[in-house]
Amino acid sequence: MLQAQGLSKSFGRLRALDDLTATLRRGQSVALIGPNGAGKTTLLKCVLGLVRPDAGTLTLDGESLLDSPAPRRHIGYMPQIGRFPDHLRVGQLFEMMQEIRRGTHEQTDGELISALQVDRIAHKPARTLSGGMRQKVSACLAFLFDPQVLVLDEPTAGLDPVSVEVLKEKIRAERERGKLILVTSHILSDLDEIATDVLYLIEGRLRLYRPILALKAESGESRLDRVIARIARDTAGETPAGERAAS
């Protein structure tokens, strides 16, 4: 459903994405992995319409994500750093997002709002929120409009352990309901629990795109961090192998 074809983007001399082609389907939870500067954020930002690629196409169910803002109604986004207008109360923030998204969705999903107890801080001005609370608000907003695609940038960073579990459970549940999840995280043990596939980027190129179960079976490792360490070692000297299709 989400299809990238020959996606390229340079920032000056830096090639952030280099001819990336991949197809992501419903029911997948794809973990974007790679060293810093590998192009993970750039890829997410292309999907979100925040960065305009130099070349290539990006479609969601056949509709181009690059030409018009309308297909973004299917996408929910949880940014790495959520910052909201200082003097808006949390409740007003939700009202505002609902007004913006009026008519773009069939149903709202407020499950996280009560599960993360965000309803209790509705009266607080956004500037008084701690980092973890802002992260909770971001998570609620991402899931609020029941989107088909969820883009989660470091979703568990800064959250307390209980909330991390709530969020991971929600991500698993939504994937099982047939959503597509795109997630980055530096915490591989979290990804191990919520991701079904690994998309490994190095210097803007797709090195590997495989189901985690297959990777574990092939390498004989039971933990994702070991698998990734092995891949990183194996691919360190290798020339770019191009894309490998997901099975």
Binding site: L50, P69, P79, G82, P85
Partner: peptide
């Protein structure tokens, strides 16, 4: 510059820039 992150969040919604 203070509202940059928020503008990013808005730009990721189905809204024209």
């Amino acid at each position: 510059y203070n509202t940059q992150e928020f503008v990013e969040l808005l730009a990721a919604q189905p809204l024209p820039r």
